[in-house]
Nucleic acid binder design. Structure first.
Length: 667
DNA sequence: TCACACCAATTTTTT
DNA sequence: ATTGGTGTGA
């Protein structure tokens, strides 16, 4: 039996809503996850089957956390029957079952960003465009933006001459690879859900739909949700418009602001009592976010103490910033008897983590880095995964080309071109033509042998997979092809080579882990996890307690820490230069707000007088958001000795920053 | 065909 | 500062 006394009045209201459309406006730190967990338990208590509940989250981390919380309340076994997943994973699962209804093969591969960039390069080449003038990465972003417009844009309406040619070619290439990109997962899911019998089947199954972080949903995602919900209207959305930070991905806050228009008679519950942060942090973050116009008005309050002032850290440059921040952490830890796990360093861009990493490594302080170049995006890991992709989906030409000559086995560009011509002529996927290539006499003997060897290894690996499972097959490939040697050859630096090969070993570990965690492990299941990164390497709690967490503000959403450092609070960084250019300052402000509200007890904000970028030093200006915080709420952490430190380090600052620091010293 | 050297561009944020 | 992509010579 649920103890309703453990909740405040607003939370109770929110928990009791089981049927019909409901929108919960949950400010930062108002016990949102708790409310969701209680509501789920309540639903089960009134007799709703766990299998009928679908909870959609925005990130994998959020999904995992929600599952933990619900599991703690209703028990692990019941919880496994509840579908809790990101919208992308949900769509992938729908498509594994039903994409054949819209004319595609169910053994499709999911292409990640670098796979996409790869085929965009080829598409550019095919149309004779210069990849240096038309940056593939920018095009990839453009294509994604295009695919996230709903209803879809007619190809004939694309004004840009490059895009109008590349876009269809890109899509055709995906299809030829029997592959989908992230956006296709959603687009094809919509097509499947537009087939009445499919739609009805899913509606029958998911009778209660909940969407977390609803303020970040875009029109396509909303389209999927609406198709799933149907007329029954058991939709429960939770969100906070002040924390909408994915506008660049097509998120439309209006969907949240106007929810009542789409679902007539929707109930609104506001959670405004904050349990997380001190009065100072709430007041400061409130003062910042108030500068945004378009929002559902709400005022967070707490019955707790005002707490410490916000610590402002002024640094000479990014090196100095890292030193000061880490010193501050070490000091606080000792003084207040804390653990490293109580601290988080948040930054706007992943690149900022490097300086901190280097310093922490040197000082022997352990840290957890979230995001960045993710494990599965590393070259050596992509190579290994490509073998699995070829085994599973031979039409995945991108993966095939990646490994057909890796490690080098005498198959050069010329031979490949010839085989590919043959494939094109025979209108068969490249892989099927490899067998013919082995006997073809217009291909060098060395290359023929190489192809034969490649086919042999793939076939043998398939056998291993059948007989001994994924990890066995993976280990086989690594051993059989002497990947260790291949890795060492491509990195002359010993340490680098060691690290890279350790990653490969870690990859085998990931296979073993997947097999032991999954009730029904399959190769497509594994590849799906990799592509959607469902399987973020779980850090064991012991390590977590004694490590500083570092991540972007984006990935910090939904998390909280005792002490938070927002670093690089400078114009052109936070707010980011790009956002200043296209006038999306409001979103940057929300980002700053999200960062501030991650802190429970203590918040530090740091900025530097100059910063190196591409090896060049530029003067920096403190972020406008810092100026929006009432002065009485903060104290300077290190202003007294900044001049001293400058002299000590013998550093000459760019004149503007010197002037700025001199002014600050006068205050 | 491969290894090495040089050159260029990179830095938003996630699935 | 790093990294990947391209070009050249063996």
């Amino acid at each position: 039996m649920i103890n309703f006394n453990a909740l405040n009045r607003e939370q109770r209201d929110a928990v009791r809503c089981v049927k019909g459309p409901v929108v919960v406006v949950a400010g930062a730190g108002t016990g949102k996850t708790r409310t969701i967990a209680y509501r789920t338990a309540h639903m089960l208590e009134v007799g709703i089957e766990p299998g009928a509940i679908l909870a959609i989250t925005f990130t994998n981390k959020a999904a995992r956390e929600m599952r933990e919380r619900i599991s703690a309340m209703v028990g692990f076994d019941t919880c496994t029957d509840i579908t809790i997943s990101t919208i992308h994973s949900l769509c992938a699962r729908i498509l594994r079952d039903d994409i054949d209804k819209v004319g595609r093969d169910t053994s499709f591969t999911i292409f990640d960003t670098s796979d996409q960039v790869g085929i965009i390069r080829k598409a550019l080449a095919k149309h004779g465009f210069d990849p240096r003038k038309n940056e593939p990465r920018a095009l990839q972003f453009g294509i994604s933006t295009l695919k996230n417009i709903y209803p879809p844009v007619d190809v004939d309406d694309i004004a840009d001459p490059v895009m109008s040619r590349v876009f269809p070619t890109y899509n055709k290439m995906l299809e030829d690879n029997n592959a989908l990109d992230f956006d296709d997962l959603l687009l094809f899911a919509i097509r499947v859900l537009d087939i009445p019998e499919c739609r009805d089947r899913y509606r029958e199954r998911f009778r209660y739909v909940m969407v977390d972080e609803f303020q970040d949903i875009n029109d396509i995602q909303y389209g999927i949700v609406r198709r799933l919900v149907g007329k029954r209207s058991n939709i429960y959305v939770v969100g906070d418009d002040d924390q909408s930070i994915y506008g660049w991905r097509g998120a439309v806050v209006d969907n949240f602001l106007n929810f009542e228009e789409d679902f007539a008679g929707a109930r609104e519950v506001k959670l405004e009592r904050n349990y997380r942060s001190t009065g100072v942090i709430l007041e400061a973050s409130g003062a910042v976010i108030e500068n945004n116009e378009k929002r559902r008005r709400k005022k967070l309050w707490t019955s707790g103490k005002a707490g410490d002032p916000i610590g402002m850290i002024e640094a000479l440059d990014e090196q100095d910033e890292a030193t000061l921040v880490i010193d501050c952490i070490v000091g606080d830890k000792q003084r207040l008897n804390m653990k490293y796990g109580d601290f988080a360093i948040l930054y706007r861009t992943n690149a900022q983590s490097r300086v901190f990493e280097e310093k922490l490594v040197r000082m022997g302080i352990s840290y957890i880095l979230i995001g960045g170049t993710r494990f599965f995006e590393r070259k050596e890991i992509k190579d290994m995964t490509a073998f699995l992709r070829v085994m599973h989906n031979p039409e995945d030409e991108t993966a095939l080309l990646r490994v057909i000559n890796y490690p080098p086995r005498g198959i050069g560009a010329t031979s490949l071109d010839r085989i590919r011509d043959a494939a094109l002529e025979a209108r068969r996927p490249l892989f099927h033509c490899l067998e013919y290539a082995v006997h073809s006499d217009n291909i060098p003997k060395k290359a023929r042998k190489g192809v034969a060897r490649f086919l042999e290894v793939i076939e043998a690996a398939r056998q291993k997979l059948k007989a001994g499972g994924l990890a066995t097959a993976g280990k086989f490939i690594v051993d059989e092809l002497d990947i260790e040697n291949a890795v060492r050859k491509s990195y002359s630096d010993r340490n680098e080579a060691d690290r890279r090969f350790m990653n490969v070993e870690e990859w085998i570990n990931s296979l073993i882990e997947y097999e032991s965690n999954e009730p029904k492990p399959t190769i497509e299941g594994y590849l799906e996890n990799v592509a959607l990164m469902t399987d973020e390497q779980e850090v064991d709690t012991e390590l977590k307690e004694d490590s500083i967490t570092m991540m972007t503000v984006h990935s910090a959403k939904g998390l909280e820490f005792h002490t938070v450092f927002i670093v690089g609070a400078e114009e052109k960084l936070l707010p980011h230069e790009k956002s200043i250019q296209d006038g999306s300052i409001d979103e940057e402000r929300r980002l700053f707000y999200v960062a501030m509200t991650r802190a429970r007890r203590k918040l530090y904000i740091s900025y530097a007088a100059e910063r190196r970028r591409y090896g060049e030093t530029q003067p920096r200006i403190t972020s406008r958001f810092v100026g929006e915080i009432p002065e009485e709420l903060f104290s300077y952490q290190s202003v007294k000795d900044i001049e001293e430190r400058r002299l000590e380090s013998g550093k000459k600052l760019a004149s503007t920053s010197l002037k700025r620091i001199a002014m600050m010293l006068e205050d």
